[in-house]
Simulated scan of single mutants.
Amino acid sequence: MKIGTQNQAFFPENILEKFTYMKKMGFEAFEIDGKLLVEHVDEVKAAIRETGLPVSTACGGYDGWIGDFIEERRLNGLQEIERILEALAEVGGKGIVVPAAWGMFTYRLPPMVSPRSKEGDFKAVSESLLYLDKVAGRTGTKVYLEPLNRYQDHMINLLAEARHYIESNQLQNVEIIADFYHMNIEEDGISEALHEQRDKIGHIHVADNHRYQPGSGALDFRKHFDQLKKDGYDGYLVFECRVRGEDPEAEYQKALKHLQNCLA
Rank of each mutant, 00 (worst) to 15 (best):
V125E: 00
F122W: 11
I166F: 08
E186F: 07
F122T: 06
V143S: 01
N157M: 00
K223N: 09
K229C: 02
G215Y: 03
H154I: 01
H224W: 07
K229A: 13
K134E: 14
E196K: 14
A207N: 07
E161W: 02
Y151F: 14
F122G: 00
M155N: 04
Y151E: 02
K134M: 00
E175W: 04
K223M: 10
D179F: 11
S168H: 14
A218W: 02
M183G: 12
D153T: 12
S216V: 09
K200W: 14
M155H: 01
R150D: 03
L219A: 05
I156R: 00
Q213A: 15
I190C: 07
T139C: 13
D153F: 02
H205S: 09
A124F: 00
L171S: 02
G189H: 12
N157S: 07
P214S: 09
Y233C: 07
Y165D: 04
E196R: 12
R163A: 12
E146L: 12
H203V: 00
E167V: 15
K134V: 06
I185D: 08
I176E: 06
D133C: 11
N173C: 09
A160V: 12
D226Y: 04
I201M: 08
F221P: 05
Y131L: 05
A218G: 01
E186P: 03
I177E: 05
R150F: 05
K223Q: 11
H205K: 11
R222G: 01
G232K: 08
H205G: 06
D231A: 13
H182T: 09
A178Q: 11
N169Q: 12
D199R: 15
Q197S: 14
K200Q: 14
Y165M: 02
H210I: 11
H195Q: 15
S126G: 03
L132T: 06
Y144C: 03
N209D: 15
K134I: 01
L171V: 09
S168Y: 05
L219T: 00
L171P: 07
D208C: 10
L129S: 04
G140R: 10
K123Q: 14
V125I: 13
N149G: 00
N149H: 12
N149V: 04
I176K: 07
N209Y: 15
H224E: 13
H182F: 10
G232F: 06
Q170K: 15
K123I: 07
Y151G: 03
L159A: 15
V143H: 01
K229N: 11
Y181P: 11
Q152E: 15
E187H: 10
D121S: 08
E192A: 14
E196C: 00
D188A: 10
R138E: 13
S191W: 03
Y165F: 14
H224V: 12
V206T: 11
A162I: 01
A193P: 04
D234G: 09
I204Y: 01
A160W: 10
S168G: 13
S126M: 03
R198T: 04
V143Q: 00
G215W: 00
D208M: 09
R150K: 10
I204M: 15
S216M: 08
S216R: 00
D220N: 15
P214W: 06
L228T: 10
N149P: 01
K142P: 02
S126R: 02
Y131T: 07
A218T: 10
A124C: 06
H182M: 11
T141L: 05
D234I: 08
K134H: 05
E146K: 02
S168M: 12
